[in-house]
Amino acid sequence: MHEPTIDEVRLAGVLHALSDPTRLAVVGQLARSGELPCGELDVAVAKSTLSQHLRVLREAGLTRTRPDRNQRWLSLRRDELDRLFPGLLDAVLGALTGARA
């Protein structure tokens, strides 16, 4: 399972990963929760589709996956991304929160 180093993360890949509503929902949940097992993500897609979305997020450098026995735990690479693209996640998450209001 490839997770790019922060030096490999590119803005175009991050923006592409954030361009999908399901992936945005996952990022929002991780921002609120810190770390979640994959099975606890609240998204209305099939498990196989969710796996593809999680792959896109991971390969873009937005998330970190931590295996633990038979579960995979996801977290947002918030600190690293904030250093690389200051304000980007705040803007995206702020817009996501505002869209729900």
Rank of each mutant, 00 (worst) to 15 (best):
D7I: 12
G98T: 05
S51A: 10
D42C: 03
L15Y: 01
A12K: 10
A25M: 09
D42Y: 02
H16R: 15
L96D: 11
T97S: 13
G87E: 07
R64N: 05
E80P: 03
L15M: 13
E80S: 09
A44P: 05
L74T: 01
V92M: 10
V45T: 02
V9R: 12
D79V: 14
L18D: 11
A25R: 13
A95F: 07
L81K: 04
T49M: 10
L36I: 06
Q52G: 14
D7A: 15
P86L: 14
P67L: 07
R69M: 00
L24P: 01
V9Y: 10
G98W: 12
R69Y: 03
L81D: 03
V92R: 13
V92H: 04
V27Y: 12
A99K: 14
H2G: 03
L18E: 04
G87Y: 13
Q29D: 09
S19N: 13
V92C: 11
R66D: 03
L88Y: 01
G13H: 05
L84D: 01
P21H: 14
G94H: 06
N70Y: 02
T22P: 08
D20N: 10
E80W: 00
G61N: 11
G34Y: 10
P4S: 03
A91I: 08
D20G: 08
A60N: 01
T65H: 09
P21Y: 14
A44T: 09
G94S: 15
A25W: 06
F85W: 07
L96W: 15
V45M: 05
V26W: 00
R64W: 08
C38G: 00
L50W: 01
L81F: 09
G28W: 07
Q29F: 06
S75C: 05
P67A: 04
G34M: 04
V27F: 09
T5E: 07
P67C: 08
V43S: 02
V9H: 11
E3C: 00
V26D: 12
G13F: 00
A46W: 00
A46S: 10
P86K: 14
K47I: 06
D90W: 04
L93M: 08
